[in-house]
Write a protein that binds this DNA or RNA. Structure first.
Lengths: 328, 328
DNA sequence: CGCCGCTATGACAACGTTGTCGGGAGCCGG
DNA sequence: CCGGCTCCCGACAACGTTGTCATAGCGGCG
């Protein structure tokens, strides 16, 4: 900036005025300054500006499990869009479901003075955020609530969704319905399992521990679980898959089996309608999840200081075929 | 920081020393300072630190077309991973294929003094980056080269890939092969069209303008194009789809047609193997694209000042069924 | 006992920017 | 001719941090 000032023959304060479109600069002077800026390729240092003004850094942080997962990438895009409307940039980070990594990312973001944080929690301990929140950084949790801090939270109707999936399957005559869930450390996995039990109870199915498998959604694990669930004297005739990864792995594992069970997946996914059979899912508006969370965050940044809100977005069962297998 | 100093009964400089693990602080003093830091929830302001030290901001910028597209989200994840290994955070932004938006994002990133930029170019003019690059911000272009600046670039073998797709289809007897490409303003679309023509020439097929449709990859457009290509007196019997979006839309449009053409898509995508028929694609290592680009960038940051490199990653045809329809 | 050197600490300036304030030049009216 | 006003502009401090340098205290050694 001082280079620009020297070249234009003015003080740096005048350069600052021009850069900020402040009034009270002679047009001719402004022109000289702009020419100097152009010539030197000057770009204002936003960091220094924020330091001096004590103002917003114009960034928000987004922490999720894995951007490569289409569910989260949709969410990322939605957040980015709202951020753009509010003139903010987005710092993203994948936690890989590791609480320590989530924590490191969040604290790094805070050290960079993000205006706010959007977090898909990887664990249940978020006390580390308390000082930051007290210092004025709003935090919104997405998809899962935090274990031990009160803050805005946006969820989908996990319980209602899986319960509905069970009801749907039971209405086609299934009595042996299995549940394939993510690791029991994950909130949504536990909630969906709860919904599953609730659905069983309502449909008058006997809940059977042997029909539940919880674990990380890798291809081999899902395939092995399915082999077990579909064998034995009293095999499952229908499966509820607990999230998009598990559903996809299940579809792949079942592709060449003659005795395919009925299948309903949680989370919609691209091409579900083109598989054979098309996959019935409990769908929700993923983009809305991100959008609502981001809008809550920006509401806080705009001064909304009402008590923390918990928003639960509805789900709906999309019947496509894989879940409508009538038990003979 | 001065609050911490006051509480610990030391000067801010000593606090700074403690925060930075500098030697020469009495253990007892350090302990008092750490206690004060803990009590006040103090977190160092990285912005101020970078300002003073004139050092790296510890962030890199990534600009691509749309994170929600699985191709780009894979790429994002790969970049993030490399960045993490180098202790950097990633600022992301979607350009939506609009040059102005790409430019705004890039300049915002530069104003925030990112250490480097990774860009999937949305247009052909990148002169706006010259001052930044001269000022020392390394830039690496991914997936497409920049129009008018020389910089590191990582591409996939677009020409070889489509040429191979045509060769493959021709080997099954197809003579009327169509090409469905993205908008002609996009580098990869043009390159892949070139590869298509080259493939036609090598396979002894007559190149026919009527068999080429270029345009934005929306569902309706792709469906309409396919209707046209597959009708008339001399319809196409095989189709090369120019990218993952187009392939997916094509699969959907063709799903319920009796006269399905053979299909080869560019870019692999999840579930391609489970569709009916499984989709033959020209695959490449998307994560490697991001990884190599990011590594090039960090190489520059580590002082590599060799001439700009252009890396072209190989592709390979994955035959799954949709492309192996022998013409009767 | 005086000087050296080492340890632990603080005062100060500077990073790039902007808010505050003060002042010079020009103009007007009295 | 002078007071006051407006228009432009610059000097200076401050944001939170760290590099440089100075210094007080203290033990050891000749």
């Amino acid at each position: 900036m001082s280079d620009v000032a020297r070249l234009a023959g003015v003080s740096i304060k005048t350069v600052s005025r021009v850069v900020n479109d402040e009034p009270g600069v002679h047009p001719g002077t402004a022109e000289r300054v702009l020419a100097a800026i152009e010539q030197l390729g000057f770009r204002r240092n936003v960091g220094a500006r924020n330091l001096r003004r004590g103002s917003s850094t114009g960034t928000v942080g987004l922490i999720l499990e894995d951007v490569a997962n289409p569910f989260y990438s949709l969410l990322t895009r939605a957040v980015e869009e709202v951020a753009r409307q509010h003139g903010r940039l987005v710092l993203t980070g994948s936690s890989d479901e590791e609480p320590a990594r989530e924590r490191d990312l969040a604290l790094e973001f805070c050290a960079r003075r993000v205006d706010g944080l959007l977090i898909v929690p990887a664990g249940l301990q978020h006390g580390y955020l308390v000082p930051e929140m007290r210092a004025g950084t709003p935090v919104v949790f997405l998809d899962r609530p935090a274990g031990d801090v009160v803050a805005d939270t946006v969820l989908v109707d996990n319980i209602g969704g899986t319960a509905e999936a069970v009801r749907h399957l039971a209405s086609f005559g299934h009595r042996r319905v299995a549940f394939l869930g993510d690791s029991p450390g994950i909130y949504t996995a536990v909630e969906r399992l709860r919904g599953f039990r609730e659905g069983c109870a309502r449909a008058g199915l006997r809940y059977d521990d042997d029909l539940v498998v919880m674990g990380p959604p890798d291809e081999r694990g899902v395939a092995a679980a399915l082999r077990r669930l579909l064998s034995g004297p009293d095999p499952a005739t229908a499966v509820v898959a607990g999230n998009n990864r598990i559903t996809v792995h299940a579809v792949r594992a079942l592709a060449h089996r003659p005795d395919r069970p009925a299948l309903v997946g949680f989370d919609d996914f691209e091409l579900a309608d083109l598989l054979d059979p098309p996959v019935t899912v409990v769908a929700h508006d993923t983009a809305a999840l991100g959008r609502v969370a981001a809008e809550l965050l920006f509401g806080r940044l705009d001064g909304d200081s009402s008590p923390p809100r918990r928003v639960v977005l509805p789900v709906r069962l999309v019947a496509r075929g894989s879940g409508e297998v009538r038990l003979s």
